[in-house]
């Protein structure tokens, strides 16, 4: 016997979006555009996540602030209720209803959830040989991004431009020593972009990028890599830095092998920048007490990556880099996709 299909109005569904980085923003915008009621959470008091701390974005060097403004402008909808400054720690999901908790406190109820909690940067202190946290002139790529954003004069010493800088690729990526076997994908292009910025800001500064493999996979990335080599004369040295130490002038002495010349190598630089990888966020939300994470990487495990971004529990979707290293356009696309999948789930259940 035929059953009459229920007529569904989008606004009868409440959907929660946790996180307000590129993936969370896009998910919220798309869910509202479909017509669903959106509860939007972020642990910070303002939206944007890590995008707030970036200067320019690869490969085309858009200003991160403009990209963020563009995103947040579109998120001004009466269907989106902002609950910023609220950290969601777990979801209890039963009978198609989800209860959101901040520790023990219930903060919301909804029909479907999109988790877009993003990623954390790898804690570079763990790779002790680079001396991050020990030497003042060893910094990470997000540190440099903040410096570039807030004033590159911080890179000068006594008003004098740096003579040389080095970037170390794959810090906290592809490294069995620390149990991180995956590639974080975006560090190569970050290193290329930041190296170019340094060469533009300080034309006399020599820049060395120490890499294992250059993985310039995205649209426009390879082209930027070639520009970095040819136009900006950035020295790409195939070999992983094995040790960084400080000399009497507080400059950093870097030891590596130039594997293409099969010779050990040494260079003294004013700043050593560690291109840190992406690791699962420490605020990853649990679902019915389970972490839902991939046992290998710790990122959210999608139930069927070919079919969509749903986690094992129906009605809960992952968007952006909480499911694994992702670029900003990829994260945004993943947020939009999760919103549509949530809508499909709610209308077909």
């Amino acid at each position: 016997m035929l059953t009459e299909k229920k007529h569904t109005e989008p606004n009868q569904f409440r959907i929660a979006v946790i996180g307000s980085g590129p993936a969370g923003i896009s998910a919220a915008i798309s869910a509202a555009a479909i017509g669903m009621e959106v509860d939007w959470y972020d642990k910070e008091s303002r939206p944007g996540g890590k995008l707030n701390d970036y200067h320019q974005l690869f490969p085309d060097r858009e200003f991160a602030d403009l990209v963020l403004d563009d995103f947040t402008g579109k998120a001004d909808s009466i269907r989106i209720k902002k609950h910023f400054g609220t950290t969601i720690t777990r979801i209890e999901s039963a009978n198609g209803q989800n209860v959101l908790y901040s520790n023990t406190e219930v903060v919301g109820r909804c029909d479907s959830v999109i988790v877009a909690t993003g990623f954390d940067f790898f804690d570079a202190r763990i790779k002790e040989e680079f001396g991050y946290g020990i030497y003042d002139h060893v910094i990470t790529s997000p540190d440099l991004e903040k410096i570039l954003k807030t004033g590159h004069d911080q890179l000068k010493k006594g008003g004098i431009a740096p003579e040389s800088m080095a970037f170390v690729h794959c810090v906290g990526s592809r490294d069995q020593q620390i149990g991180i076997n995956y590639c974080s994908r975006l560090c190569c292009i970050t290193g290329i972009k930041q190296a170019i910025e340094i060469r533009e800001l300080f034309p006399s500064c020599k820049v060395y990028n120490f890499y294992i493999d250059i993985r310039a996979f995205g649209s426009g990335y390879e082209e930027l890599y070639r520009q970095a080599q040819e136009k900006y004369n950035i020295h790409f040295i195939r070999g992983r830095v094995s040790e960084a130490s400080e000399n009497q002038q507080n400059r950093i002495v870097v030891k590596a092998e130039d594997t293409l010349m099969a010779r050990p190598l040494k260079v003294t630089v004013d700043w050593l920048v560690l291109l840190v990888g992406m690791v699962p966020s420490c605020t990853q939300v649990s679902v019915n007490q389970a972490q839902c994470s991939d046992p290998e990487t710790g990122f959210y495990q999608l139930q069927n990556p070919f079919a969509g971004s749903g986690l094992e529990k129906p009605g809960i979707f992952s968007a952006g880099a909480c499911g694994g290293p992702m670029s900003i356009p990829e994260a945004a696309a993943s947020g939009r996709s999760a919103a549509i999948e949530a809508w499909q789930y709610l209308t077909s259940r």
Partner: peptide, 8 residues
Amino acid sequence: AGRQIDID
């Protein structure tokens, strides 16, 4: 003698 390249 060392084989190290001294970029400096």
